[in-house]
């Protein structure tokens, strides 16, 4: 009996979507789910990586970049997103600017019981903040990222991309 290879999400898929949507800066704290994306981003001359010390900074740094005419995304883990509550409120939601936040969905799986509270509280947190989100788990989900950019621009609000690939191989290239 042969086992089919699980569909994977390659870092290039996210990078292609960033480029297509005119992203200039990625403001980030790397996490274990996105380390290959980080390596790939470092080699792109059109993209500037801004490493932050705590996730709350990423939303405020992004606000400054947007006011200055750039197109940032925040790339963080769901744990850090929850730490960032007041920054998301005051620097993203209240600012009236579009922003796409790419969030590593630590602990997520669709095949079993979710035991990691980081995953359990991720969607309730986004719902409480009134932030719409799209789940991206494999390459064929990539176009949802462009949908998120369009929605953020249309509504002048943050929109989240949840990268739910922890067990599928986002780290593969």
């Amino acid at each position: 009996m042969t086992q089919e290879q699980a569909a994977i999400l390659e870092p290039q898929t996210l990078l292609d979507e960033f480029k297509k949507n005119g992203v200039t800066h990625v403001v980030t704290i790397p996490d274990s789910e996105t380390n290959y994306l980080y390596e790939l981003m470092k080699t792109q001359s059109w993209l500037t990586i801004v490493p932050a010390s705590r996730e709350g900074e990423t939303f405020a740094i992004s606000l400054g970049l947007i006011v200055g005419g750039k197109v940032p995304v925040c790339l963080i883990q769901n744990t850090g997103m929850m730490e960032s509550g007041d920054s998301i409120r005051g620097m993203a939601l209240d600012s009236g600017f579009p922003l796409v936040m790419v969030v590593g969905y630590r602990g997520w799986n669709r095949h079993g019981v979710i035991t990691d509270s980081a995953a359990r509280y991720t969607e309730p947190f986004l719902n409480a903040m009134g932030i719409n989100y799209y789940l991206v788990e494999q390459d064929s989900d990539g176009p949802r990222i462009s949908v998120a950019f369009e929605e953020a621009k249309a509504n002048k609000r943050p929109v989240a991309i949840l990268v739910g690939d922890e067990y599928h191989g986002f780290n593969r290239v």
């Binding site: 405020a60 740094i61 970049l65 005419g69 750039k70």
Partner: peptide
């Protein structure tokens, strides 16, 4: 004069973003 307040502690971060953009 740039109004970048909104969350205590984060105006510093927003100012950095503006400096990087310009």
């Amino acid at each position: 004069d740039a109004p970048l307040a909104g969350a205590m502690g984060q105006t510093t971060s927003a100012s950095l973003g503006l400096a990087l953009a310009q």
